[in-house]
Design a protein around this nucleic acid. Structure first.
Length: 678
RNA sequence: GCUGAUGUAGCUCAGUGGUAGAGCACUCCCUUGGUAAGGGAGAGGUCAUGGGUUCAAGCCCCAUCAUCAGCUCCA
């Protein structure tokens, strides 16, 4: 290695500096102000190889947190790390997202410092940055209380005020292991053994009296952690396994400034304001009743109306696309679930059997066996295929008590479930049609972005799957082919397939950028075999049909929950339970006109509510506003005289008067077009 | 299921062992108004449920149920 190395800056200029120069040195040589503002550096080795940034992948991998092996890829390093080879150098300031992750990771160290100072008996697990902050997993017999958390936060402020430099130390692995073993730090010992190899140097980061096994990088000193908050505490299993010991996971968040942190908290409040559980109550859409049981949804009139609209659309669309609507029972005899295999592989998610006469019955957790019985009820010719049975089927699944969440995770729900029985030749076009349908659902309900995931078999786990190698290869090939044929970009998840077949999941991205699993299209090799499904082919012989499961809303409840949050309760016209609110300026003078307007709007098929209470018009406007009613019509002398209405539009305000006729036309058009805007 | 927190009027929440509270909503009365809260009065609670401690429990203890934040699992 020569003594001089080349440093390429983002503007393309190249500097020759002695090996061992640090990013901080480079920053200082440019400007001391830059040096003060910069947090960490991103370096990409210049070896004539096209280096690609794969930080995201690195950060996702726990291994990478500790190993430090990043090959030729770009990596984020400490400002004080000596540069030893030719690199492209980027000095990252506080505004860089990568810098934010670094300061949060440093904040986790600050928190660990505070915890050990206050509660020295605590053992440390790991403390990574997350999308919204950071956490540290720790073990301590006694639970931390809220007062403890406040004390930890206060002590963190002291650690920050001490302005302790984060110093990277490398030492022999065995030395580190010995020290941690002596301290009883069983989790650190595990991480070193898991993520480093014998004979290697391990890296530690030290600030003041605190040392942590850590790959880094970190901000230069604790003083750079300018804004932070200890948020909450929760349990977390050691190594994510519920059979293991439970740790205490302390969550916090950190920013480079109090202002950014305030903005973050404000954002959290906005998310809470669109929480479907909060809006469900405020807008009287649905409830969950303790006396009835957890995870069971009561659809109130307004929620019910939205549901009806969703279901009507879905049924019509199914019929239009060649599905046949079917209905199957909610309870069926246990024998059926034995044949389908649910008794075996799904029993723990099913409600227990109930005895009726001499037989045992079970509540259905899935619709497939019912649809299969319909298929099997009469012989099928290849000319009959595909058979597409669709049902909005209510299913009940036992979910563990801590897992329920509003409409998004429940014990009783309605699947817009369909099963397609077809010949192997028809599979590709059927899958195509399913994806097409899924896209139509997303588009119609106002989602612009979505992601596609292909779950395939992990060849290493051969015995955990039903079906032959050939079946799987064909099915996976078909799914991949369809996705590629449509030009859809998708992520492949080997090993994530159901045991009975591969699947395509469509996850939608809501207005806040959150991901929701809804639509799914799955192959099934299992049930056609178990039920010995057949069709008579052109050759006159019996063949086994291919079976495809498909749900597009996924669950009507969950889809509704996502819709509520997506629209923050401000539904587009066609979905809004009350589309028009009527406000007479004076009941005495204008109620009669208001009632005639109501009648005429209802005759036009609109959903209207007239507030005939004796309050002031201002408060009536406010009430409709809080209910997020799309249009409020103000009716006074002027309107009554000209057969017109004064239109107030949700989120826009007063738009002045138009004739009733013109308003009806506008409203009907918005409904018919499923328009997102008003 | 696990860890921690919470459960008081329809809703949002006060109430640290001694007679159960507020605002909004509701009912009635007054007010009849021009684009997000007019005024007054009234009614409304088995303090989640079941045990226990105490002269006395919304409050302290135990159990159960539910909710919340996570973990695990999933549409």
């Amino acid at each position: 290695m020569s003594n001089e190395i080349k440093i390429q800056l983002p503007d393309g200029s190249v500097r020759e500096v002695p090996a061992g120069t640090t990013a901080l040195d480079v920053a200082n040589s440019i400007s001391p102000r830059l040096a003060a503002a910069v947090v960490v550096a991103r370096v990409t080795p210049l070896r004539g190889v096209a280096a690609t940034a794969n930080e995201a992948a690195l950060e996702a991998s726990e291994e990478a947190m500790y190993s430090g092996h990043a090959g030729d890829a770009a990596r984020v390093v400490d400002l004080r790390a000596p540069l030893t080879e030719d690199v492209a150098l980027e000095l990252l300031k506080e505004s860089d997202p990568a810098a934010l992750r670094v300061v949060r990771h440093s904040a986790a160290h600050v928190m660990a410092t505070a915890i050990l100072e206050l509660f020295p008996e605590t053992k440390l697990g790991h403390g990574p940055a997350t999308d919204n902050g950071f956490f540290y997993d720790v073990y301590r017999e006694v639970p931390f209380t809220e007062m403890d958390l406040a004390a930890i936060e206060a002590r963190m402020a002291e650690v920050v005020a001490r302005d302790e430099a984060f110093v990277r130390v490398e030492e022999p692995r065995e030395k580190g292991l010995e020290e941690y073993k002596a301290q009883g730090e069983f989790m650190k010992v595990h991480f070193i053994e898991r993520f480093t190899k014998p004979g290697e140097e391990i890296s530690l980061y030290r600030n003041g009296g605190f040392t942590d096994f850590c790959r880094g990088p970190h901000v230069p000193s604790t003083a750079r952690v300018k804004a932070f908050k200890v948020m909450s505490i929760a349990g977390a299993y050691w190594l994510g396994n519920e059979n293991n010991q439970q740790l205490q996971r302390i969550y916090g968040t950190a920013f480079f400034s109090a202002k950014e942190m305030e903005a973050h908290f404000k954002h959290l409040e906005e998310i809470k304001a669109r929480d479907h559980r909060v809006l469900g109550k405020q807008l009287e859409l649905f409830s969950i009743q303790e006396v009835a049981g957890a995870g069971l949804i009561f659809w109130h009139p307004k929620g019910g109306l939205i549901r009806k609209t969703m279901e009507d659309w879905m049924r019509d669309e199914c019929v239009r696309r060649g599905y046949q609507l079917v209905y199957t029972p909610h309870i069926m005899r246990r024998e059926l679930w034995k044949i389908s295999g649910h008794e075996g592989f799904y029993a723990e998610n099913m409600y227990p059997p109930m005895e009726l006469d001499d037989a045992e019955y079970r509540l259905k957790p899935m619709n497939c066996p019912g649809h299969i019985l319909i298929y099997k009820n009469s012989p099928k010719s290849y000319r009959d295929l595909p058979q597409r049975y669709a049902e909005l089927g209510n299913v009940y699944r036992y979910e563990r008590s801590g897992t329920m969440h509003g409409l998004l995770r429940v014990r009783g729900f309605t699947q817009d479930d369909a099963h397609i029985f077809c010949t192997p030749e028809q599979v590709v076009s059927e899958i195509e049609a399913c994806l097409d349908f899924a896209e139509a659902v997303l588009k119609t309900f106002g989602f612009k972005e979505y992601r596609v995931e292909l779950s395939t078999r992990d060849p290493k786990k051969g015995t955990d799957f039903v079906g032959t190698e050939e079946d799987w290869a064909n099915a996976e090939g078909a799914l991949t082919g369809v996705l590629q044929g449509r030009g859809l970009s998708f992520q492949n998840f080997p090993g994530e397939a159901a045991f009975y077949g591969p699947k395509i999941d469509v996850k939608l991205v809501d207005v806040l950028g959150r991901l929701w699993q809804l639509s799914t299209v799955q192959f099934d090799f299992n049930l056609p075999k178990r039920f010995e499904l057949e069709y008579i082919g052109e050759d006159g012989a019996a063949h086994q049909p291919v079976m495809v499961h498909r749900a597009l809303f996924g669950s009507v409840e969950r889809f509704f929950g996502v819709l509520i949050e997506h629209y923050a309760g401000s539904f587009p016209m066609w979905l809004a339970p009350v589309q028009v609110g009527l406000v007479p300026i004076s009941n005495e003078k204008h109620l009669a006109y208001a009632e005639s307007v109501k009648q005429r709007l209802e005759a036009a098929g609109l959903r209207v509510e007239l507030d005939a209470s004796n309050g002031k018009m201002q408060s009536k406007i406010r009430d409709f506003g809080l209910q997020k009613v799309p249009f409020i019509l103000i009716l006074g002398d002027k309107e009554a005289a000209t057969d017109s209405v004064s239109v107030r539009v949700r989120a826009k305000g007063d738009e002045g008067s138009v004739t009733l006729e013109a308003f009806v036309e506008r409203a009907k058009r918005l409904v018919a077009e499923h328009a997102m805007e008003l």
